[in-house]
Amino acid sequence: MIKRYTHQAAEPIVSALLLEQGFVVARASSLESGYHLTANKNNVNARLLIKHLQFDECYKNSLLPYQVYKIKAFPNGKHDSITLQHVDFIIGYNLLDNSFACVPVDVYHNQGIACFHSKEGLRHEYFNSWDELHTFTSSDILPIVK
């Protein structure tokens, strides 16, 4: 039984999932980097912060026919300007049901906690999907030349 979630427990699992998707994965070289992993594809690096994809207790007695999750992107759950400044995506992973959410950091632009529905509903497009990360690292996107 898992007693306490740590990103260290989720990192190897998330890394394996990313490798299956064709990404080259590396751990951050320093604790001060602000992110845990990088995922590279088409010579584009995405910096990933691994967090707990928690069951949202606010929906515990909900009549919704599917699970609702949340990810706290900030240590205290409140938005700050420092924590995510070097991060491109938050990857929430749930060790109990092996689900994940790959969330662009701009979702947390003005909030510290975001809610995710596992089916239709709020931010369901991030649940168990790498689509946003694939788009971010797509070679179809041309850099802006000044």
Rank of each mutant, 00 (worst) to 15 (best):
67 Q>E: 13
137 T>R: 11
26 A>Q: 12
84 L>N: 11
106 D>M: 05
133 L>F: 08
20 E>D: 14
142 L>I: 14
56 D>E: 14
88 D>L: 01
123 R>P: 02
59 Y>G: 07
51 K>F: 08
124 H>I: 02
97 D>F: 01
57 E>V: 09
120 E>M: 07
11 E>P: 00
66 Y>K: 06
19 L>I: 13
52 H>K: 11
15 S>T: 14
46 A>P: 03
39 A>C: 05
135 T>Q: 13
102 C>M: 11
50 I>S: 05
42 N>V: 03
104 P>R: 02
107 V>K: 04
31 L>W: 01
39 A>L: 07
137 T>K: 11
33 S>W: 01
50 I>T: 08
82 I>E: 13
62 S>C: 10
80 D>L: 04
118 S>T: 06
142 L>N: 13
70 K>G: 00
70 K>E: 13
119 K>N: 14
30 S>I: 02
68 V>F: 05
79 H>S: 03
37 L>C: 03
114 A>Q: 08
31 L>S: 11
119 K>D: 14
43 N>Q: 12
25 V>M: 04
81 S>V: 08
102 C>Y: 04
100 F>C: 06
14 V>I: 15
125 E>M: 09
78 K>F: 10
41 K>Q: 12
19 L>N: 12
130 W>D: 05
1 M>F: 08
26 A>L: 10
83 T>V: 03
40 N>H: 04
125 E>D: 13
44 V>I: 15
41 K>I: 02
7 H>K: 10
92 G>P: 06
6 T>Q: 03
34 G>W: 12
9 A>R: 04
84 L>V: 05
34 G>M: 09
103 V>T: 10
98 N>I: 00
70 K>C: 11
109 H>P: 00
123 R>T: 05
145 V>R: 14
87 V>G: 08
37 L>D: 01
85 Q>V: 10
54 Q>S: 14
87 V>W: 02
95 L>F: 07
78 K>D: 08
90 I>Y: 04
81 S>N: 13
77 G>Y: 03
78 K>M: 08
60 K>Q: 15
92 G>M: 06
80 D>I: 02
7 H>C: 09
126 Y>A: 04
33 S>H: 10
61 N>S: 13
56 D>Q: 08
